[in-house]
Design a protein around this nucleic acid. Sequence first.
DNA 1: AGTGTAGCAA
DNA 2: ACGTTGCTACACTG
Length: 893
Amino acid sequence: MSETTKTTSASDKKLLIIDGHSMAFRAFYALPAENFATSTGQHTNAVHGFVSMLLTMIRQQKPTHVAVAFDLDTPTFRSLEYTEYKGGRNKTPEEFYGQIDLIAQVMKAMNIPSITLESFEADDILATMATRGEEAGFEVLVVSGDRDAFQLITDRTLVLYPKKGISDIPPMDAEAVETKYFVRPERYSDLAALVGETADNLPGVPGVGPKTAAKWLNLYGDLDGILENAESIKGKVGESLRAHVDNVTRNRRLNQLRHDLELPVSLEETELVAPNREEIENLFDALEFNTLRKRLFDLFAADEDEEQPEAAVFERLEAKDAGALGDFIAAGQGAPIAVQLAVTAAEAVGVALFREGKAIWLELAGLDEDSEKVLADFLADAQAPKIFHDAKLAKHRLIERGFNVAGLGDDTLISAYLIQPDRRSHELVDLVQYHLKYTVPVLKPAKKGELDLGLTADLAEPTLAQAQAIFDLSAFLAIKVAEKHAAQLAAEMELPLIDVLFDMERAGIAVSRERLDELNAHFTGQVEQATKEAYESIGHEVNLSSPKQLQVVLFEELDLPKTKKIKTGFTTDAESLQDLLVKTQHPFLVALMAYREAIKLRQTVEGLLKSIGDDGRIHTTYAQTVAATGRLSSLNPNLQNIPIRSEEGRRIRDVFIVGEGYETLLTVDYSQIEMRIMAHLSGDEGLIEAYESGEDLHRYVGSHVFGVSPAEVSSEMRSKVKAMSYGLAYGLSSFGLSKQLKISVDEARTLMKDYFARFGAVRTYLRAVVDQARKDGYTETIFGRRRYLPELNSSDRRLRDIAERAALNAPIQGSAADLLKVAMLKISQRLREGSYKSRMLLQVHDELVLEISAGELDAVQELVTHEMSQAADLLVPLDVQPGIGKSWHEAEH
DNA sequence: AGTGTAGCAA
DNA sequence: ACGTTGCTACACTG
């Protein structure tokens, strides 16, 4: 944060003059409108971006005078001369309305004059102001997104022209214009007249681009020179020029900016003075700008007090010795400290610590022994609260460096997830932009082929800024979390779970590379066999993995009946292939289906082989903030979708084995967890009775739906009610049920009717869930986890239906997820307190896999089954099923 | 690099 | 249009 402060003598005057509309538009398109709105619905993205841009410019360029020029809605001398001027532009987006006026209000509060002039454009005001400024001996900076401004460039006037968005606005000088357009700025308008300007609806000479125009200008001096010599220009372009002379002269007249206007504001009145604090406060309250307010006041406060380095929002320390670090930590007096790591090549190389107003940066490579000890003690101190963004990842990076972490005060990743579980990204940069409305610097990972120099010194500044952002975000989100009643969930479930998941990920699960290799060979053989048969059956080769090529084979060459339509034609999915097989008996289909099954399994096996770690184990990563319902997800590799349903696929579970030093694997899973939760939430007497009777659930339900005794429930009847029961939790329709069971819609409807006649409270409950969610805006699990579903009130039928099904499912799936999380926390705690060596390895939504140490099986099995079945007190018992074996397959039951 | 299709799990 | 929540692989497209 050590920006060099240019010393400017008092006599140096600098005028910053801004094209208000064009910059507001840039800001509008640079920032997503949906992220910037007040609670009353007024969009503020253009206002926010504009003010942010202005503050940055004032900070960087240090102008002594500032003014903003705006266009008026009334006609200008240009539109009067040429009615199509600036025609054909898209309509102003609705979200932009009112934002210009708000910007003008902010300018007023900042004591920056807004200049408008009847029948002239902002560009003419810029030109006039620039000329006045130059005459008075000012340096001039013109900020505009309109290229016409380039004609204003001189040795004393620069144009700041945004490349894209509002953060990248490099100054253009004469050199820059010449490099880009091959002419000096004073000839730019001539060039533009020849080329034309699409944005202003000013066609030029067809066939003439900047290159040709520049060539002519350099040849004939200026536009008049070209027009005088128009007859002597040869070829198609010469012809084109002669045919469009009118365009050119008109363009030139219109793009000539006026330098001589009578302006309502004098140069002296544009002097930059302190803002009107009260007005800013009121305005920013209404606009709900909080970080901008701080930036604004910091900026002007820094101006008043030369002592304070204005760019530094916080005081930055560099840990040169253990004393400095120790003092920094001690001075915090136990208040939370934000911790952010700088990581290169998956390795932590630096640490930024932030507490209120102060930050410290440590390079891990350069740490002396004493400092390392101070840092290690701080990180491992359970009484020293630390704030991370993604604590689990940080813990992995730190333990690899020999640092243990305890005392987790907050994790902004978790907080952000709990208040917006449907959000797809919870990356720090996005969250800071979204919630705090400022931009935090990110470290771009080196691209492929680029050398990752990993200059640690360059990491300091962005990492410190990130640590500050985490600190700010934690405070901000804590309020939101409390407002949304998620504080208890965070403190008692999600934050403690981080440590449990960290341990599971670090443990990993042992695999047999030998068995994986065997399976790989086995499935590869099947793939080859199926491929061969497929090719033979159609007489040529085809990429069996390409749905597009398969469509050609199936529906054109073989002319098989058409399947369900998809975006790219007709589906070739497994279900449709099966239908086609029944209809046509074509041998290609048999081979293709065999190919699909075998290659899928081989991919799974290959993926597992690639993820075996140096310790011979596979370490998945659990994502705690991805599934909107509260479930975990597993990635790199995904161990929550290892095949089990097909006999062939199931063999893959045999490669997951008990590790060395352990005796056996133990799996424990909930039986019918979601149906039990449905019974509990609905309070349906019939379902509760079913579970208490000890009878097989689907048999029991079937006997009531079909009016027969349990013994008389046929397997067909049983599978129907089973599909029905499970479908309910997903918002299944009679159409969907009929499709799944391959029965008529009428029959499906009858089935549902009969079902609800016996288990009516289920229907009542499901309807109530959606009603409540529509009213309150969210669904809730047994443990109070919320999922927000604003689209329940959408006018778009499709979106509303999707939201309704999500609403039906979220409390059920989410409560099941909560239950297992509670159980995992208890199990982890009891394993630790009992000093067991046995440990949890995997979680698969309703199942836990543990690795059991010699002699601990009975106790641990008892402990696990107990904690799982007692995770909550429901209206129905929670039944759990243990299994034991040397492999995951064996332990399955 | 992003999109679409497909298929595996709970 | 018609059952939820995920992850990964591949082909194909810009």
